[in-house]
Design a protein around this nucleic acid. Structure first.
Length: 687
DNA sequence: GATCCTCGAGTTCG
DNA sequence: CTCGAGGATC
């Protein structure tokens, strides 16, 4: 009887081993190769069978069982793990010239005649990990730590699905070495990072500044069940120890890792020394496609392929000479938040901005960054004195991503919400349900300056040569007390001002004179009615065709217009009710500013682009965006500011912004360039 | 009432 | 370019 039982048990044990083997293999197909060969349901069935058997026969559970990815108890603290070989840091090449200099240095150090080759791999912005395997089983995983000793995060790393718990994951016809130590990078895919942060925000959990921090924070969790809920992934790229096998080159290393079932960059490339120009081109290409990847890379690693040659080149300082990091221009940097300043906007909003210790990001020195509003400050929990991560949104406008809380000294000062306008000193108000804080003093000089700036700006009355500097000067000198005063500036007054000569005064006065004949739409924009920008102004101009008819319109009539709702209608009526505003209008009329459209603007209903909606991104080669907009509208098309399912074409120029481009790609919206647009219009593409 | 879309407002450096 | 909020639509 005993014997039959033993036999039965042995059969179960074998079945469990078979299940583990199969699950490891399918796991590998799914997470490493990204090409599953069975359905999710079938995979689940295998997994359920294994779990069931393990519950009935716990004595047969092995540490490499796929069910053991999530398991283990929360740790008190991490054990220390000495690394078999120190993890060095790489020297950086900031541009192609420095990369060439590295190659020359390497060649100088080596005896002539040694054939050289290079392997180039993407440098993932994640967390370096060291993985130990004994007889093919994953036994220990450590963080980089200080490079000599890391922290034992085995239980956490187990939860990463692309990390093989057993190698090779299928019968590759090769036996695993008795001991194998590999190095890799754990990271969070960019798409998963955004999704994860969104969820965290909804549930009030911790939000991470970037995928790198998210990966590091997730791997260094004391409770592995938390790590298991984080969408982490892995790439491996180096072998530290491999007992019983000989690997001569980096290229062979990648080959071997791949055969053993590790996730390895498919994009790594090998170049002979004679192909160095191609290597350079390869580096440039990567810099360009950086945004299209689902993992953040901060550069590429260029290694001498031959490992013995690498070793021969030795180490200088803490960096091996045989490899170098080709760094892309940084998009993020850390710096100190020195202070917070406040701007007062045209509408009276108080807008806080950060004053930063100057820092270089993608070729520009950043000294200031917007903080948007005080809710944003609270959300980020930034304080004066904090070390903060700064990024250029869309490669242009600096923004604070968040503070690095770990670097706080305790001397940081919270940012106070102002109760009074920093310019005029009047108390501020906060409207219920709104984020912004307002200075409602109609006579606040800051608001007047902003109003004048807006009035003369390109989209409004477009007075060339009149900018923010002059706006401030005239207000300060008392020459301008409302926007209509612009048309009453006298030459003798201008000449009294510093920096004004005969010619400059004449030029300015001529520009002001010219602006009197702008279309009605521009005048409406220039008034600065809250909620009325160029689009709404266009609707109003088309419908009313004169300021007087607009000024006497009732709320109900306004609301009838498409695109104008109760809020905007109320705002318009309120504007024209104010005696102060009526006065300004009269003053403008007396100055000779055009107040009506003689001929109603005919919008062509038909045309080659009738009914089509375009969105423009990037810089066009031969025309401005305004010119392109005019062309499209003249042909009956529309230009919108953001991509949605209603967009027909995305007009793509040089250096397109990521958001519009990616959204359009997601939605499968056709993309055209300038030449294509001109062809659609039946025109010859520009030379 | 929810959801998608569009508009307005503010924004930095060289 | 990004954000918030108003407007349109179901």
């Amino acid at each position: 009887m005993n014997e039959t039982q033993d036999l039965e048990k042995e059969r179960v044990r074998q079945r469990m081993e078979e299940l583990r083997r199969q699950i490891h293999y399918h796991n590998y197909r799914y997470y490493v190769l990204d090409s599953p060969v069975i359905s999710d349901a079938e995979y689940d069935r295998l997994m359920r069978e294994l779990i069931e058997l393990e519950q009935r026969y716990p004595e047969f559970i092995t540490p490499d069982s796929p069910t053991q990815r999530v398991g283990g108890m929360p740790a008190e603290q991490f054990e220390k793990v000495p690394h078999p070989a120190p993890i060095l840091s790489l020297a950086n090449a900031m541009n192609i010239e420095e990369l060439r200099a590295w190659r020359e240095r390497v060649k100088r150090l080596l005896p002539a005649g040694i054939p050289l080759a290079y392997v180039v791999e993407p440098k993932i912005d994640g967390l370096t990990v060291v993985l130990h395997y004994e007889n093919g089983i994953f036994v220990r995983g450590a963080t980089r730590g200080d490079g000599l000793v890391g922290e034992d995060v085995t239980a956490n790393l187990r939860t990463i699905h692309s990390l093989p718990l057993r190698i090779p994951p299928h019968d590759a016809g090769i036996a695993p070495p008795p001991r194998l130590v590999v190095r890799g990078e754990a990271y969070m895919p960019v798409s998963k990072f955004h999704e994860f942060n969104r969820r965290q925000m909804e549930t009030g959990g911790q939000v991470f500044a970037n995928p790198r921090n998210a990966a590091a924070g997730s791997v260094r969790q004391l409770d592995p069940s938390i790590t298991a809920s984080r969408p982490l992934s892995l790439f491996t790229y180096a072998i530290v120890t491999a007992e019983g096998i000989t690997i001569r080159t980096q290229w062979e290393t990648l080959e071997y890792l791949r055969r053993m079932g590790f996730p390895v960059f498919a994009e790594a490339a090998r170049f002979e020394d004679a192909q160095f120009e191609e290597l350079e081109k390869y580096c440039q290409e990567w810099a360009e496609k950086r945004d299209t990847l689902d993992y953040e890379i901060d550069g590429l690693v260029v290694k001498i392929d031959d490992l013995e040659t690498q070793a021969r080149l030795g180490v200088v300082g803490n960096s091996p000479r045989g490899s170098i990091a080709f760094k892309f221009p940084a998009r993020e940097a850390t710096t100190k938040l020195l202070d917070v300043g406040i701007n007062v906007g045209r509408t009276g909003t108080l807008n806080p901005y950060a004053i930063l210790e100057p820092v270089q990001i993608s070729g520009a020195t950043i000294r200031k960054a917007t903080l948007h509003n005080f809710d944003e400050i609270a959300r980020l929990d930034v304080r004066i004195g904090d070390t903060v991560i700064v990024r250029r949104a869309g490669e242009v406008i600096p923004e604070i991503v968040g503070p690095i809380v770990d670097l706080r000294t305790g001397n940081e000062r919270p940012i106070e919400v102002p109760t009074h306008c920093p310019v005029c000193g009047e108390p501020v108000v906060r409207r219920p349900g709104e984020v912004a804080i307002y200075c409602i003093n109609a006579a606040c000089p800051a608001q007047l300056v902003r109003h004048v700036e807006h009035f003369v700006s390109q989209g409004a009355m477009d007075i060339v040569g009149f900018g923010s500097r002059l706006a401030e000067l005239f207000v300060e000198q008392g020459l301008i007390k409302d926007v209509a005063d612009i048309y009453y500036l006298k030459k003798e007054d201008l000449l009294k001002l510093e920096g004004f000569g005969e010619k400059k005064a004449d030029n300015l006065l001529r520009a002001i004179e010219e602006s009197k004949n702008r279309p009605l739409q521009r005048l409406i924009v220039a008034l600065g009615i809250p909620g009325v920008g160029s689009v709404v102004a266009g609707i109003l101009a088309d419908h009313f065709r004169s300021i007087d008819r607009l000024a006497s319109a009732a709320e109900e009539e306004l609301q009838q217009l498409e695109g104008i709702g109760p809020e905007t209608a109320r705002s318009i009526v309120e504007y024209f009710q104010r005696p102060r505003h009526r006065e300004i209008l009269e003053k403008l009329r007396r100055a000779g500013v055009r107040m009506a459209e003689e001929v109603p603007a005919e919008r062509p209903a038909a045309g080659p682009l009738a009914g089509k909606t375009f969105v423009i991104t990037g810089t066009l080669p031969h025309m401005t965006r305004e010119e392109a907009t005019a062309l499209i509208e003249a042909a009956g098309g529309k230009v919108a500011s953001s991509v949605s399912s209603k967009t027909d074409y995305l007009l793509v120029g040089e250096a397109p912004g990521g958001t519009k481009y990616n959204k359009a790609r997601e939605l499968g919206i056709p993309m055209i360039d300038e030449a294509e647009l001109l062809r659609m219009l039946g025109k010859e593409p520009a030379e």
